[in-house]
Computed example of a mutant assay.
Amino acid sequence: MTITGGKPGRAALHLARAASLAPSPHNSQPWFFVEEGHDRAFEVHADAGRRMPLTDPGGREMVIACGAALFNVRTAVRHLGFRPVVDVLPEPADQHFLAQVSFGAHATPTDDEESPARALSLRHTHRGPFGPEPVTEALLAQLRDRARAEGAVLQVLDVPEKVGLLARLVDTAERADRTDLWRAVELAHRVGPTGVPVGACRAHPDLTLLAARD
């Protein structure tokens, strides 16, 4: 977690801690945060120095990770009892300045809004194989609603032929990646104390339907 802007306020530290719990490619955490003094506003910036250039050449995964951090910031603002006011790309000339979040009107958070706040510290990435239990239609409907609220669409692959096609595409990409020596070196640097824990990779990628990390 990196936060700049003099001595940070208590609210800024709360937001930064929440943001730093977001998922990122191989735990690279490609972001830094700026406080605009006395908890007036909170900025989310992409840190290009933490981007994995061979794994993420276009920076798309870096921006997605920062988007997840921004979601956590919004969740933390609601937990404090305010409505988040978000300005995306506030300075178009600075493409790494992704968002500014300020405190809007006071509003007591609902139970639905508090639930994600409670879950922030519990979230973790599962890197093992998928279990055989089917996902219930009720949960899928809830996930679709959550995605729609964020302006996104959750596409469910429930046709075996489509799942098989996806598995073949993932396998093709995995095998292509293995031939890239420098990319393998880059990934190796992201395993260990500053990246993905060694014990988190539980199964060889060739033993799962959708290739996992090796």
Rank of each mutant, 00 (worst) to 15 (best):
H106F: 05
L98C: 10
P8C: 13
K7A: 13
A212N: 13
F103K: 03
V163G: 10
W182Q: 15
R144Q: 11
V156C: 04
A19W: 01
T125V: 14
D180K: 10
H189R: 15
R146W: 04
R40Y: 05
D206P: 00
G192P: 12
S28G: 07
A152V: 03
D171G: 04
G199K: 08
R51A: 12
L70D: 08
T125N: 12
K162H: 14
A138L: 07
A76D: 07
S24T: 02
L165R: 13
T2L: 09
G49V: 02
A69L: 10
F32P: 02
F130E: 05
A211M: 11
A212K: 14
P116S: 01
Q29N: 05
L154I: 11
R178F: 06
D177M: 14
A65V: 04
R146F: 04
H14R: 15
V88T: 11
A212I: 02
T194V: 05
P84R: 07
E114T: 03
V191P: 06
R74N: 07
V34G: 01
A184F: 02
L154A: 15
T172G: 06
A48Q: 09
D214L: 11
D171N: 06
K162A: 14
A184R: 15
A105W: 01
T108G: 00
M1Q: 11
P160R: 12
A48R: 15
P84T: 09
A11K: 12
H79S: 13
R190I: 07
P129G: 14
V85M: 03
D145Y: 04
Q142L: 05
T2N: 06
R17G: 08
A69W: 13
G128H: 05
P132M: 03
D87V: 14
H106A: 14
M1T: 10
S121F: 02
L143W: 08
R60A: 13
N27K: 10
P8E: 04
A16P: 05
T108P: 00
D177V: 04
A93R: 12
L143P: 00
V159R: 15
A138F: 02
A41T: 13
T136D: 09
A18K: 08
D87Y: 02
D47H: 12
R40W: 02
D206M: 07
M62T: 15
P132R: 05
D39C: 06
T194L: 06
G131R: 05
D94Y: 01
D214F: 09
H126D: 12
A200S: 15
L70I: 03
F130M: 11
L210M: 09
A68S: 12
V63D: 04
F97Y: 14
A76W: 08
A212G: 14
W182H: 15
L21W: 09
L139K: 07
